[in-house]
Nucleic acid binder design. Sequence first.
RNA 1: GCGGAAGUGGCGGAAUUGGCAGACGCGCAGGCUUCAGGUGCCUGUGGUCGUUAAGAUCGUGUGGGUUCAAGUCCCAUCUUCCGCACCA
Length: 800
Amino acid sequence: MKYNFKAIEGKWQKRWEDGKIFRAVDGSDKPKFYGLVEFPYPSGAGMHVGHIKAYSSIEVVSRKRRMEGYNVLFPIGFDAFGLPTENYAIKTKTHPRIITDRNIEKFSNQLKRVGFSFDWERVVDTTDEDFYKWTQWIFLKMFEKGLVYRDKAWVNYCPSCKVVLSNEDSQGGKCDICHSDVIQKSKDVWYLRITQYADKLLQGLDTVDYPENIKQQQVNWIGKSTGAFVDFAVDGIEDKLEIYTTRPDTLFGVTFMVIAPEHPLIDKYADKIKNMDAIQAYRAECNKKTEFERTQLVKDKTGVKLEGLEGINPVNGKKIPIFIADYVMMGYGTGAIMAVPAHDQRDYDFAKAFGIDIIQVIKGGNIEEEAYTGDGEMINSGFLNGYTNKKDSIARMIGELEKLGIGKGGVQYKMKDWAFNRQRYWGEPIPIVHCPHCGDVAVPYEELPLRLPKIENFEPGQEGESPLAKIDSFVNCKCPKCGRDAKRETDTMPQWAGSSWYYLRYIDPHNETCLADADKMNYWMPVDWYNGGMEHVTRHMIYSRFWHHFLYDLGVVNTPEPYAKRSAQGLILGPDGEKMSKSKGNVIDPLDIVEEYGADTLRTYVLFMGDYGVATPWNDSSTKGCKRFLERVAALTDRLTDEPASPEFESKLHKTIRKVSSDIEDMKFNTAIASLMTLLNDIYAVGSINKENLVIFIKLLCPFAPHLCEEIWETLGGEGFLSLAEWPRYDEAKTVDATKEIGVQVNGKLRSTIVIPTDAGKEQVLAIAKEDAKVKAMMEGKTIVKEIYVPNKIVNIVVK
RNA sequence: GCGGAAGUGGCGGAAUUGGCAGACGCGCAGGCUUCAGGUGCCUGUGGUCGUUAAGAUCGUGUGGGUUCAAGUCCCAUCUUCCGCACCA
């Protein structure tokens, strides 16, 4: 058969779609498999090769599972709210709805042309009001349970996008979307109390099958530390200055304190501070720096001493100076620290710069040179003297502080509450009404969805307020509680909202009475295998795990964790080895590949190109190599024979079944395909193949190159769809060969190879080895010191 | 700085976890087919020495070590990539 992919691919895509053969069945008796891939943002640019690679893994696993008799849910949808669409809407004066629908259609067609076996009857779109109704519902449930609060806060604000960003969206002081510098601005912010779930999110990691590096990233992100809160009295004022420390054991070594420039104590006691001018000047200086700069300048500590206020070390009553310095952040701990220069490098640098005393309280290191952070015997530390174990001294100190009522043990998280509102049009409206009499009131559940009003102008206001604020008919409403005039919240939710629960909606996408039917969720959840990008391992995954834990506590879902297993694909780099980008002109368009080589070649190549989890450059010649492979497979129909296969070939075939089956489970797609290539070479070497064995071959190849394999199946007179045929099983007995070639070493160096009967005894194998001419020559005139035989692997004869 | 991963031919990468390094693919070279280009098919392809050959010898970032045997384990060291980062 000649390989005419253009004719084949459209034909089978149509048959699959018409036959609805990839439809997931609710409540089937079969075992279930829920495979999930991160749904795409339908950008105008269309699909990227990265999408193909990301989806191909679960695609192959899902296809294999179907053939193994599973009831498979492999859905797709669109994460369609977001800034790029809105910005494009502003630019082209087109409604985001129109743009989104257009892009979704384009994406769908592209995905279909690659032949992915998605269940197209379960497509979800986060911007569909039937979907975001339930996003709003979950928000209101959180509001009801006290997990939502509003606060005035200094927020990360992108002056270009005119939008408030979470810490997660403004990493490194740059806007995640447009990469402009982020500035600090005072705003009304809605927060979700994700910190309340920090411990559950940490503990949940012990119950899921994620790779270690992914777990570690999530652990780091949550950033739990244990330590103590300690109150320091300040000379001359009533208020205490509370600090957080992970090293309360070093309290006797405290020689100064540092507070963040924004610390409220400063303004409150401005009249007591004698050098307010200098303080204000320093603050102004800090304000100019972005958070990025502030966290970059590790060296050259700067700061100003507060003249007129002095702290008192609670354990020894010593008076110590207080500084403001920008290396202390208001956003972590209490915004104030006790400084122990002898045992903390930052404090040490600061003390050296400002000529402050350094008191060593733990023996060890050389504090003339640098801070000593290791363990050792406690000295100069009153009741802690003589302690050598950090753990013990910390426990003793916390006990002492608690007895005195000036401190207590506590934990801190790097993770902050999730800033949840955006001043944008193209997002889920936050279903809250501001009533002058009742305060913030939830929109009643029965009024959901709170629809986005149809408007013409999507530009944000001058001060960055939401475009919705200009729509009087939307803003003005009655308070659901008291019925008097009230105003609607005009901010919308961030892009992460819809993706925090979308995998549940796939289970029951058209349900009008709840987010998904409980029985169906009991059947399908948890997601058995979720693949996506490393860039979503912290934000998206932590947010959605948070929402899922919340829904579990609410009794809506039956599992605490949404994803049983997670994997991540490596990037596809440009042919030049650089990250693909428009500006570098090294972008590969998957549709060009489909046009030129066909979808099966594209699918095969993205999995063959290298280790799935590792970034690999695109190589057009190698793509051709995959095409050549498929052409040679197609030509097998011209090499059919009625002859039974030789035992040697049967053995190779069954080993290949075993290898492909296990490699797919281990995501070693490259070696799975390589073993099929090897088998194909073997078939060509033999010259022919019988029908029975060819069917096994195309079944193994089917998850990778389904169009071609279906076509061959049809040519061979197969009934129905190969995609639904039974996955081949290997016969263990047939994978065992009668003889085996093994290496023979003399003194650890390979000198020859011999053929032995499989599982022959040591004596027999050694006898064969010693008969070998080359081995004989090497042993000539020497005495044997040691003989080693590793069954079916190697012989090593040590001679002197 | 902390945490994680990785360094293997001209290139992408294999190596059943301590047992014949370089599977498979690309590229390259030679040959056949072809008017020719391309495609296809066959053969070869880690380095060095060796007239071909037989063979020898070196070889998995670098330097040591353990072992009959090391890409794989241990110690030291260099490099690259990816997270996190004045987190108290």
